[in-house]
């Protein structure tokens, strides 16, 4: 189970993704709603981590699920619906970022997180937000993408390869370089080695 989802409270249901997909294919849209509720948070956080602002990220997640539904019959492994819909979301998010760049807006200026602080640990969150923006936000998209897939989504390298079309070794190198970049930034802030 992807790490990001394991730390998130899930709807109370023991029905597998595969069973929900089959029900949805039979016309049960509420079962599809259960799939959406089950996986939307992970997709949203990935899009946000990639640098998509909050509102477009919400639209991307919504569109990804709608597109997935329209093509649900082509989902080869319904029990891995989460990886399949993630692939759709990822394509949309990367296209969005490409579109932004074509318009001459640097991803660096996209606020990664809301400017308003969270309800607790305001100071710590602010510091961590700065670390994330510096350490991850300035990574090239391919490195950030690989890092988030690995450490936010918890995908295996094989799943990442199937999603991106890149080789496992190339993806390992991207994750390694992302870790090194993050380590460098955090080390400069005396957060890693203290």
């Amino acid at each position: 189970m992807p790490a990001s989802w394991s730390s998130t409270p899930r709807p109370v249901t023991t029905i597998s993704d595969g069973a929900l997909v089959r029900r949805a294919l039979a016309g049960d849209t509420e079962s599809y709603g259960t799939l959406v509720r089950r996986h939307q948070e992970g997709l949203f956080r990935y899009a946000r981590g990639l640098g998509v602002p909050r509102e477009p990220a919400q639209d991307l997640v919504q569109d990804a699920f709608i597109k997935a539904y329209r093509n649900l019959a082509t989902c080869e492994d319904p029990n891995r619906f989460e990886v399949w819909v993630f692939r759709i979301l990822r394509n949309g998010a990367l296209d969005f970022l490409k579109d932004i760049r074509r318009r001459g807006v640097s991803v660096d200026v996209i606020p990664l997180l809301d400017p308003s602080p969270g309800p607790f640990q305001e100071t710590v969150r602010s510091e961590l937000r700065a670390d994330l923006e510096v350490g991850l936000g300035r990574l090239p998209t391919d490195l950030r993408d690989a890092f988030l897939m690995k450490h936010l989504e918890g995908l295996s390298y094989e799943e990442m390869a199937a999603t991106t079309g890149a080789s496992v070794s190339a993806l390992k190198m991207r994750v390694l370089r992302a870790r090194e970049a993050l380590r460098q930034v955090l080390a400069e802030r005396s957060l890693v080695w203290m």
Binding site: Y32, G33, V36, Q40, R45, V61, L113, D114, L128
Partner: peptide
Amino acid sequence: NAALSPLRDEPAPDVSEAVV
């Protein structure tokens, strides 16, 4: 994990009704 925690803590919108 600490650097990713703001992302994990950010409340995600519920799009399920709109999707359905």
